[in-house]
Design a binder for these strands. Structure first.
Lengths: 211, 211, 211, 211
DNA sequence: AATGAATGAGAATTCATTCAT
DNA sequence: CATGAATGAATTCTCATTCAT
């Protein structure tokens, strides 16, 4: 009598998701090396045992978080219906979507950095990600081909390079907003600065693809 | 026999530099949270106490490493003599230099990422860095103005945005070479892939600036 | 065989108390600066991590030990029932109790010294201690007043000063028994020396209060 | 050429004394365990090598400091010329002197505590201290005998116990001024509190010795 | 499933002491 | 004598992981 009751109801799926959400925040903020399992347990409302029960360990949890993050952006991209648009509109929309996704999901950026710091070993085995990525690049390639066929776009633009560049110009700006703020002396995250950047980015890409 | 030799160099400047060099490698490889002071001491050949004696602590050592890394790229940039070149040549050379610097100093990329993960708090107070950065952007601005004056370049290109973009397209590719390799399915670091990328990057920037 | 047994007691209250007991001994023997957390862990049978888990750190543990030590003497004092005695008997009993408490709890003395070395910052916030102390001084004051009213005691003896003096003459003798032994050339802790001292102390106090 | 000059002139006696003075402050403030050799070197203006050169080590330095502290009080006591005074005046003067010495040399108190924490092992071998102490107790004994002979004092007061009590009532109050302040709720070091205390102390001792 | 106490292997940091210059 | 760089053994503290309940 008088024993402490278990804190939360048993709800496996929910617990797992809560852990994943908390872990995403913690890993994004501190990196794999800096993240604390205790913190994730506390933030998620679960306890440490559950993390090991569901994910096996810190590193496996990190792998799950990173895979989840990539699935997030790729699955939203698929919803854009790019192939239904005029090629130039499709490319513009993709640039805008990428930018906005990074803005709304800033943890994606630091998670990707962490995964690269660790040489991508946590996603190396994910066929799902490779498949989604292939679909994405194929979509861009088809857009480029249609645009080239209609004379709107230049010919022989490399789809992978373009995908990388579209990501790069948004990712880098937001990734380096803190050091950028110090070095350039302006607030990279102000409404005006963000507006100026997306405008510049669209122009960069459009000048690259348009005939 | 086989014992570790004492490090009785009694050469403060040298010891400090050896620590800094070893720290750069370790912080670049593991981030601030993942780096090990023990490892830095061992790699540098110095004693752990010396790290605290000269730098005060792990975090201050990290700050010194990051500042040093920025000083490295900025000081090499100054040696390019960009203002002595024709504007289009200057911009091309800057794109190439940036790319090559990243290639030859891959630790710069992860150090910058780490510093951004920690919201730039380690370089926030460095006036020297701000000054060097300002000189750099001013140089690019002057190149753009000269190019615009001669009709070679478009008018009103924002120097800061261009600087950011030049960095972005190289930095992102190399930063994400591991995840990129997994997702895109090709080796980002092969001779051919690197050649293709720098070509694409030069084209991206030149199409952005040329009239 | 002969290996240290894991401490899988899973009994938080007990573990905390074991740590506290071991810490009291170690802090008493070596002071805050000289005490070793490792030693406390080993003596208590608990794991080092538990100390940090339950107390937060060495200094907080010290604070808990000091507070506990004060609570010990004050709570035993309350059991004396001094107000039920004739004033002169009450004062005599208090002098004797104080002396015996110091004799039986020698760690109390060095803990108090340590706390004073650190300017009482660990107990500065303890309302409980202030309250107990107030009750104690109030009791002595009432004894003095009753004694004065009956003509047995002198009038206007300051209760706080008397409390301090009662503590002083016992505390100092026992605190300085080692240096005293060297300098005076007799064993302060011998049965005879102790008997002589308590006799002298009772006389000192009684001559001070009696009419 | 361009080498850094030695900071201070060579002056052995002075250096030794400076170290001793700095050590007294540091050991008094932090105890033997908490004191830092680095700090002593810095405060004294000497360097660490000198400490080892002159004293042999931290513990020997502590021994020197403690011995010096005892020599200080005993040598000043001898200057009081107590035997030239009327017995009651002599005792009163001794109580006052002891109090004032503690007030003016607060480090004496904590050094004595530290030495007792370490069971007096640093002064255990000092014949000089024993000799001075014997002279001191003999002086008090003679005062008591003279006072008893003249009928001013009670007979058979133990000189050692009286010496201890005279020290105790001042030492304890000042030693415990920090915890006392917290527990009793008044400032032990205020001018008024100090005046009240010395008055109480003189009364305590005089009531003990006077017929 | 869930809890959080307990573990133990590190990790950062400190510090008395030594010694080349 | 004097300096302060260098050492290495401790010391405090952390943290991923395990496990009794």
């Amino acid at each position: 009598m008088g024993e402490k009751l278990p804190f939360r109801a048993r709800n496996p799926d929910n617990t797992k998701q809560l852990i994943l959400d908390a872990a995403k925040i913690e890993f994004a903020k501190a990196g794999l090396g800096g993240a604390r399992v205790d913190k994730i347990a506390e933030t998620s409302g679960a306890n440490k045992g559950m993390i090991y029960h569901y994910f096996g360990g810190k590193e496996e949890l990190f792998a799950a978080v990173v895979e989840d993050a990539y699935l997030g952006i790729r699955s939203q991209e698929r919803l854009l219906g790019l192939l239904d648009l005029k090629p130039s509109e499709a490319i513009k929309k993709l640039v805008e979507f990428t930018w906005e996704y990074y803005l709304e999901n800033p943890e994606f950026i630091t998670l990707v950095n962490s995964e690269n710091l660790h040489e991508a070993r946590h996603i190396a085995g994910s066929k799902q990600l490779r498949k989604l990525q292939k679909e994405y690049v194929d979509t861009v390639r088809e857009i480029l081909e249609r645009g080239a066929a209609s004379g709107e776009f230049r010919k022989d633009i490399d789809a992978a390079q373009l995908c990388i560049t579209i990501a790069a110009i948004g990712f880098y700006y937001l990734n380096n907003r803190h050091t950028g703020g110090v070095l350039f002396g302006f607030n990279f995250a102000s409404r005006e600065a963000l507006a100026a950047r997306i405008k510049f980015n669209i122009e960069t890409i459009m000048r690259m693809v348009m005939n």
